[in-house]
């Protein structure tokens, strides 16, 4: 009997210890990725990386200035699609939606969220690249915008719903219409959360590569305007990493470090901002 009890205790300790090891493994994976990128990218990064165009193959040096600007333009377009749709869609789901239609929309949003990004790229190719007969910033931005919608919409909805009922009731008791309540009370109260959601959505699409391969394509030079192919950081990382040149590999690490740093800063920063008290808790 005692033997059995000891056995059970042993199993208990061993299995719980193993589960702790699993967590340790996952967490150390992130530390390893970060450390390795900082090490490899840190030695490769320099001022020219941010200010110069890529040099032709064989010439050392050069940078990714065009890719950085390209990524910024793509993100701007994506934000122009993702933020309004996310915000208004979130308002609908949180404030107006009936039971069935909301459920359907939520489900569709989740499914769109799970759709591989490369498939969304095919959509952008079909409706923008094919008719225009050319790769463009526009098509890339559209693809990224569509990918952003689900994240933006669901987080906006979540934060709007977390605004306490009494706040709405107080506004309505003062005679405000429903829309006025939403626009002047509910949305401002949920704003920090909504901004966070949008930033996280942007951080997510900033690293998307697959849909850009055949929408924004790539470009060794500056891409003026919106209807020409453009370089972008993730695509540059990809092409430089699979190329056989040592110098390009170094630049790929540098680009990887810049991209990951941006994404992690947004993730950690929004987390810190949100962990402060939300407005209605301060009341």
């Amino acid at each position: 009997m005692n033997l059995r009890a000891n056995w059970r205790k042993l199993i208990n300790v061993v299995m719980l210890g193993l589960s702790g090891m699993c967590t340790l493994l996952a967490v150390s994976l992130l530390l390893f990725i970060l450390g390795y990128l900082v090490w490899q990218g840190g030695t490769a990064i320099n001022w020219a990386f941010f200010t110069e165009l890529p040099k032709p193959v064989g010439e050392p040096g050069g940078g990714m200035a065009n890719a950085i600007v390209g990524s910024a333009k793509l993100l701007l377009l994506a934000a122009l699609i993702g933020i309004p749709v996310g915000l208004l869609g979130g308002i609908y789901l949180a404030e107006f939606g009936g039971r069935t239609w909301s459920f359907l929309l939520r489900y569709a949003t989740d499914l769109l969220n799970g759709t591989p990004s490369i498939v969304i790229g095919l959509l952008a190719y079909g409706i923008l690249v094919m008719p225009m007969r050319q790769f463009s910033t526009l098509a890339g931005g559209f693809a990224l915008g569509v990918i952003m919608i689900p994240t933006a919409l669901r987080t906006a909805e979540e934060f709007l719903q977390s605004v306490p009922r009494p706040l709405r009731e107080a506004a309505m008791a003062l005679g405000a219409s429903r829309w006025k309540t939403i626009a002047t009370v509910v949305v401002p109260a949920a704003l920090p959360g909504i901004v966070t959601g949008m930033l996280l959505g942007l951080a997510r699409i900033a690293g998307e590569t697959a849909p850009l391969l055949f929408t924004a394509f790539s470009n060794r030079f500056w891409s003026p305007g919106w209807i020409q192919p453009t370089a972008s950081l993730p695509v540059m990382i990809y092409t430089y990493a699979i190329a056989p040149y040592e110098d390009w590999h170094r630049q790929a690490w540098a680009a990887g470090l810049v991209l990951l740093a941006l994404i992690l800063i947004v993730n950690v920063g929004t987390r810190i901002l949100l962990s402060r008290r939300t407005p209605w808790e301060r009341l």
């Binding site: 992130l30 998307e208 990887g256 991209l259 987390r271």
Partner: peptide, 20 residues
């Protein structure tokens, strides 16, 4: 939260680490 950060790392960076 740390593990969520792992999910935020872009695919192309996993690929970069994968190759090298």
């Amino acid at each position: 939260f740390v593990i969520d950060l792992l999910a935020a790392v872009p695919s192309v960076i996993y690929g970069l680490l994968g190759i090298f």
